Simulated assay, not measured.
Amino acid sequence: MHRSAAEFMGTFWLVFGGCGSAVLAAGVPEVGIGWLGVALAFGLTVMTMAYAIGHVSGCHLNPAVSIGLWAAGRFPCRDILPYLAAQVLGAIVGAGVLYLIASGKAGFDASASGFAANGYGEHSPGQYGLVAALLAEVVLTFMFLMIILGATDGRAPAGFAPIAIGLGLTLIHLIGIPVDNLSVNPARSTGPALFVGDWALAQLWLFWIAPILGGWLAGKVYRRLAPSA
């Protein structure tokens, strides 16, 4: 229960902080933080939560991370569903609080604004298609999990894992935001999609399948790469 509560809180912070930076701050005239700021915000949410709750739950905040760690032999199968439920619920509540705040501005429309939802085709920031988004999500989730698995390896320098993971998430956002607003996290995609509805829900399948596949592959590869970890 304590670990699930920690995952709920951490994923809430990830969505509220990361997506909140995109919805509330990225496009502000003259002082907007832009894509660089949004990428940094996502990295900071994970880094801060890793220090805050890493010792409680491991700070997964992401179904793809939980499944990747399971594939690497570092996480028990019996805990996957409770973690996934807490992560998705935290993401939905985080998106809900963000929606209430954003709605305080006259004329706000979640569907019209995109509400930081992930999408491809006409809903991609750079107009990238389905195949490009699918490949980006698999590859970037794979690399994110490789960073996580390496940084948390017992042979890695102690105490620096949150920094490496946070900066890793920042980097992959810098690469992936133009493609599909970057997910690498099915829970993060689900929260905003529920408030956008329509196209965001229709495209949500990709942002579950691709990150989970990338995470699972990374777990299998790292297990062979560092078998004594």
Rank of each mutant, 00 (worst) to 15 (best):
112 A>C: 09
194 L>M: 08
61 L>S: 05
139 V>C: 09
176 G>E: 02
63 P>M: 03
163 I>P: 00
186 P>G: 06
36 L>Q: 13
85 A>E: 02
154 G>H: 12
123 H>E: 08
177 I>N: 07
107 G>T: 02
81 L>T: 04
96 G>V: 09
123 H>R: 12
204 L>M: 06
134 L>S: 12
167 L>M: 13
50 A>Y: 03
202 A>W: 13
161 A>W: 04
210 A>H: 07
202 A>V: 11
87 Q>Y: 05
100 L>R: 11
174 L>I: 13
175 I>Y: 10
173 H>D: 04
186 P>Q: 08
196 V>A: 05
99 Y>V: 08
56 V>C: 07
200 A>Y: 10
203 Q>L: 12
12 F>V: 01
55 H>N: 14
9 M>T: 07
119 G>T: 08
179 V>S: 03
63 P>Q: 02
49 M>A: 14
143 M>E: 09
101 I>N: 03
182 L>N: 10
69 L>H: 03
190 T>Y: 10
116 A>K: 04
71 A>Y: 08
52 A>R: 00
117 A>P: 11
207 F>M: 00
63 P>W: 00
89 L>Q: 01
228 S>F: 15
223 R>Q: 14
144 F>G: 12
159 G>C: 10
110 A>F: 01
132 A>V: 11
166 G>P: 05
220 K>W: 14
85 A>W: 12
107 G>Y: 14
195 F>S: 01
105 K>R: 15
98 L>A: 05
138 V>C: 07
30 E>Y: 15
193 A>D: 08
36 L>F: 15
136 A>M: 14
124 S>F: 06
202 A>G: 09
144 F>N: 08
94 G>P: 07
173 H>K: 09
55 H>M: 07
196 V>G: 01
131 V>Q: 03
106 A>R: 15
70 W>G: 04
156 A>T: 13
120 Y>N: 01
61 L>P: 09
110 A>Q: 04
186 P>S: 06
21 S>R: 09
150 G>I: 11
102 A>I: 00
146 M>W: 00
120 Y>A: 01
54 G>A: 07
223 R>L: 10
17 G>Y: 02
85 A>S: 11
46 V>T: 02
74 R>F: 13
203 Q>V: 12
195 F>Y: 02
190 T>L: 13
123 H>M: 13
